[in-house]
Amino acid sequence: MIEMMALRIATHIKHAVPDHPASTQVLKFVLAAILNTVFIITLTLTVSLFTGKLIEVVIIMVAFAFLRQMTGGLHLKSGMGCVVVSTLLFTGLSFVHLDYKWTMGATIASTLLILVFAPAGIENQTRIPPKYFPLLKVAALILVGFNLWFANPITAVSFLTQTLLLINIRR
C-alpha cells in the first residue's frame, strides 16, 4: 500500500516536473521512506493517546530512532508491515516497567550487542562511507552509555529492543 502510494505521488511529481533530475524510482523510494515514517509516528501517537502512554511512546520512538541511525538493524520487506510491527512494538514497549537492576542489565546488554553486532545492514541504507562505521559504533556506545548514568527504564527497553534487531539470525 505504501509503495503504491509512493509510486502514484512520484509519477505525479515526474508528470508535473518532467525535467526533475530524480527518476520516478528514486522519488518513489524516498517518498516510501517518508510515508513509512509519517504513518508509524502518526499511528503510534494516536494509539498512545488512547493508552495514556504518550510520554513513554515518544521517549521510546526517539531513543529507538537515534540508535537505529547509528547501528542499523533488521528491515522488513513491506512498508505496511513495518508500520504495523513498529506501531505494535512501540506501543507494547510503553507498558514494560523495569526496576533499577533490570534497567542497568538491559543497558549493559545493549552495550554488548553493539560491541558485537553494530553496525548491521546499513551498507545500502546510508551515504556514510564504511570507513566511518567504527565511529558510528563508538557514537552508539556513548549514547547507550549515557543510560548507565540516567538509568531511564523506558530508554533502556527501547535501546535493548533496537540492539536485539542487530542480530542476524541467518548467519
Score class of each variant (00 low, 15 high):
residue 2 I to D: 07
residue 3 E to L: 14
residue 3 E to Y: 14
residue 4 M to V: 15
residue 5 M to E: 14
residue 8 R to A: 15
residue 12 H to D: 14
residue 13 I to V: 15
residue 13 I to W: 10
residue 19 D to P: 01
residue 21 P to I: 07
residue 22 A to M: 11
residue 27 L to F: 03
residue 27 L to M: 04
residue 28 K to E: 12
residue 28 K to S: 11
residue 29 F to N: 12
residue 31 L to K: 02
residue 32 A to N: 06
residue 32 A to P: 03
residue 35 L to S: 01
residue 39 F to V: 08
residue 39 F to L: 13
residue 41 I to Q: 02
residue 46 T to C: 14
residue 47 V to Q: 08
residue 48 S to H: 05
residue 48 S to C: 02
residue 54 L to E: 11
residue 55 I to H: 12
residue 56 E to Q: 12
residue 57 V to M: 09
residue 60 I to E: 05
residue 63 A to K: 09
residue 64 F to V: 10
residue 68 R to T: 05
residue 68 R to Y: 05
residue 71 T to S: 02
residue 71 T to F: 03
residue 73 G to A: 06
residue 73 G to F: 00
residue 73 G to H: 02
residue 75 H to R: 01
residue 78 S to P: 00
residue 79 G to H: 11
residue 80 M to H: 05
residue 81 G to C: 02
residue 82 C to A: 09
residue 87 T to H: 05
residue 91 T to W: 01
residue 91 T to G: 10
residue 93 L to G: 06
residue 93 L to K: 03
residue 94 S to C: 09
residue 95 F to P: 08
residue 96 V to C: 04
residue 97 H to S: 14
residue 103 T to I: 09
residue 107 T to A: 06
residue 108 I to R: 03
residue 111 T to Q: 11
residue 112 L to M: 04
residue 113 L to W: 04
residue 114 I to Y: 08
residue 116 V to I: 13
residue 117 F to N: 11
residue 121 G to E: 01
residue 122 I to R: 07
residue 122 I to Y: 02
residue 123 E to W: 00
residue 124 N to Y: 04
residue 126 T to H: 02
residue 127 R to A: 13
residue 127 R to Q: 13
residue 131 K to F: 12
residue 132 Y to E: 10
residue 134 P to F: 06
residue 137 K to M: 01
residue 143 L to A: 03
residue 146 F to Y: 09
residue 147 N to G: 02
residue 150 F to R: 10
residue 152 N to Q: 04
residue 153 P to C: 08
residue 154 I to G: 00
residue 157 V to K: 03
residue 160 L to C: 02
residue 160 L to N: 00
residue 160 L to E: 04
residue 161 T to V: 14
residue 163 T to W: 02
residue 164 L to S: 07
residue 164 L to F: 10
residue 165 L to K: 05
residue 169 I to V: 15
residue 171 R to H: 14
